[in-house]
Amino acid sequence: MSCEPWQCAEVAATKKAMSITKPEVAVSLIKRAARPILIVGSGAVERELEGRLLIDYLIDFAHASKVPVVATAHIVGEFMKRGFKPSGFMSAMDIGNRLVDPSWMGLDGKGPYDVVLFVALPYYMEAYILSGLMHFAPKLKTITLDNAFHPHASWSFPNSNVKVWSENLKVMTSKFEGGQ
């Protein structure tokens, strides 16, 4: 497992993400969050982990953790086909743009989010959005659940193979009340 950026040139400058060495760390961060949100990109229906699509792992995780989900690109329909209604769907740029606005009260109007989980956007696109949030939403903590290290996040899993990734997601899900 490596804590170098997955795409070699996506180097950090003065700030670099903390590495999530084990899934329990991510769980702890999420449990401590007052208003977490999970943003799921189009890769959720393209990445297969140990015979299951990533989206299925994420639905399990969302059910267990009760973290609201925003589907980007066109994948809201894929969630709904599986009987899961995301809290919202919008383009990745739109959600990024709202998150840098401290006055945005969230999808439910109950207040700003404090922890944002990202997964399954194209690597470079996710990297740019994370950079935007790092600079312009400094109070927000960002966590990536991909198997590719994202230096511009606050916390990121290291680069890993799909087997480890699958295991991490399963462990995370199991650590929430709804996942037991």
Partner: peptide, 25 residues
């Protein structure tokens, strides 16, 4: 249509005052 910025680099290195770290405000 307000700009949403996503910097490719945390630094400015265009003059000899720099490099300057422009992160987080």
């Amino acid at each position: 249509y307000k700009p949403f910025y996503m910097p490719a680099c945390d630094l400015c290195c265009l003059c000899t005052f720099g490099k300057c770290d422009l992160t987080a405000g």
